[in-house]
C-alpha cells in the first residue's frame, strides 16, 4: 500500500492534496476516540520533545497543542516571545537552531510574519508545524473546522460554507478556503468590501457584501473574529456598524436553515460578530471545534513527528 503521508512539516493547506487532508481527518477520528478512554494517553510519541514556540500570543492554540503532545506522551517545552532571546535581539533562525541543538523533534511555531514556519522548515531537521503565521495560514484551525463539518454533516463535498468577517487579515479564512475548495465545498466570503476584496474570487470562491442574501442558503456559517489588534480605522467605521451590517444577531440567525452549523474559531466577541444567544444556541458547534482541535492536532503531531527522519 502506498504511504499516504510523507511530510515532516505542516506549513499550510495550500500545498496539501485532497487525499492528504482526508487522511489527516481519518487519523483524527482514531485520536478522538483516545479522548473517551479512562486513560487519555497513548505512547505514540514517547521520547520525542516538542517545543511550543509562540512569538505571537495565543492561549487556546498553544494549550491545545500542549495537551495534544502530552496525550501522545511527548515532552513539551513552552516558549513565548517575551521570555525568549528574540527579545534580546537573537534572530529567529539562531533561536530555532539552539532549540534543535537541544534535540527538539517537533517545533510548533506561531509567528507574526507570513512564511516564518517555511523558513525554519527548510533549515531544520525537526518537524515544523505552523500554528499561525501572519495573515498567511493557520492549517490546524482549518483542519479542525473541516473535521467538525465532516463529523456533523457526514461530508464536505457539495456543502455551501459562508465565511463571514475580516477575510483580508485572516489566516483562518485562507486555510479554510484552500481546504474547503479542495474537498469540494462551495464557499462564499461575506464582509465589508474593504475586508473582502474581489481578488479572493481567484481562489475559486464567491464574494458577497450582503449577508442576508447568503444566510438562507448556507449549510455552514463560519464567523471570524474582528481583530481589533490588527485593524486600523480606515477598514470600517466602527464596531457598532459592523455588527449592524454583518453580525450574526438573534434576528438574522432566523434566516438560517434549521440544520445550518454555526462555527467560530474563537475567541468570540459576544455582541460583535455573534450574539450570545446564537453562540450558545443549538446550531452552534463552537465547543465541538475546541474538542476536535485536540484530536486533529494529535493526528498532525503523530503524522509529522512519527515519520522516520
Amino acid at each position: 500500500m502506498k504511504q499516504r503521508w510523507n511530510r515532516k512539516d505542516l506549513l499550510g493547506l495550500r500545498e496539501l492534496s485532497a487525499e492528504e487532508i482526508t487522511f489527516i481527518l481519518e487519523t483524527a477520528d482514531a485520536f478522538k476516540e483516545v479522548g473517551t478512554r479512562e486513560i487519555k494517553k497513548v505512547p505514540a510519541l514517547r521520547g520525542k520533545t516538542l517545543v511550543n514556540f509562540f512569538v505571537e500570543p495565543s492561549t487556546r492554540t498553544r494549550t491545545s497543542f500542549e495537551l495534544a503532545a502530552v496525550r501522545l506522551s511527548a515532552d513539551v517545552i513552552n516558549i513565548s516571545a517575551s521570555a525568549s532571546s528574540l527579545a534580546k535581539g537573537e534572530t529567529l533562525k539562531d533561536t530555532a537552531r539552539n532549540l534543535e541543538a537541544l534535540h527538539a523533534d517537533i517545533l510548533v511555531l506561531r509567528h507574526s510574519s507570513a512564511g516564518a514556519p517555511q523558513f525554519l522548515a527548510q533549515r531544520l531537521q525537526a518537524s515544523v508545524i505552523n500554528a499561525g503565521d501572519g495573515a498567511h495560514e493557520h492549517p490546524t484551525q482549518a483542519l479542525l473546522d473541516l473535521y467538525t463539518i465532516r463529523e456533523k454533516r457526514g461530508t464536505i463535498a457539495g456543502l455551501h460554507v459562508a465565511i463571514i468577517g475580516d477575510i483580508l487579515f485572516s489566516r483562518v479564512a485562507r486555510s479554510n478556503i484552500f481546504g474547503l475548495v479542495k474537498l469540494g465545498a462551495r464557499v462564499t466570503l461575506v464582509g465589508p468590501s474593504t475586508l473582502v476584496p474581489r481578488e479572493f474570487e481567484k481562489l475559486g470562491v464567491e464574494v458577497s457584501y450582503k449577508i442576508d442574501n447568503v444566510l438562507p442558503n448556507a449549510d455552514v456559517v463560519n464567523l471570524l473574529r474582528i481583530q481589533h489588534e490588527r485593524q486600523r480605522k480606515e477598514y470600517f467605521p466602527g464596531i457598532g456598524e459592523y455588527t449592524r451590517f454583518f453580525g450574526l444577531t438573534k434576528e438574522r440567525a432566523k434566516l438560517l436553515k434549521p440544520d445550518c452549523l454555526i462555527m467560530h474559531p474563537g475567541p468570540i466577541n459576544r455582541g460583535v460578530e455573534i450574539d450570545s444567544e446564537v453562540a450558545d444556541g443549538l446550531q452552534s458547534v463552537i465547543l465541538d471545534q475546541v474538542t476536535n482541535g485536540l484530536a486533529v492536532r494529535m493526528a498532525v503531531l503523530y503524522l509529522c513527528g512519527g515519520i522516520a527522519t
Binding site: T27, E33, L45, A308
Partner: peptide, 13 residues
C-alpha cells in the same frame, strides 16, 4: 514509531 520507514495507520478502538 519513528524507527520504521512506514508509519502505521491508526484506527479508532
Amino acid at each position: 514509531v519513528g524507527t520504521r520507514p512506514e508509519l502505521p495507520v491508526v484506527r479508532a478502538s
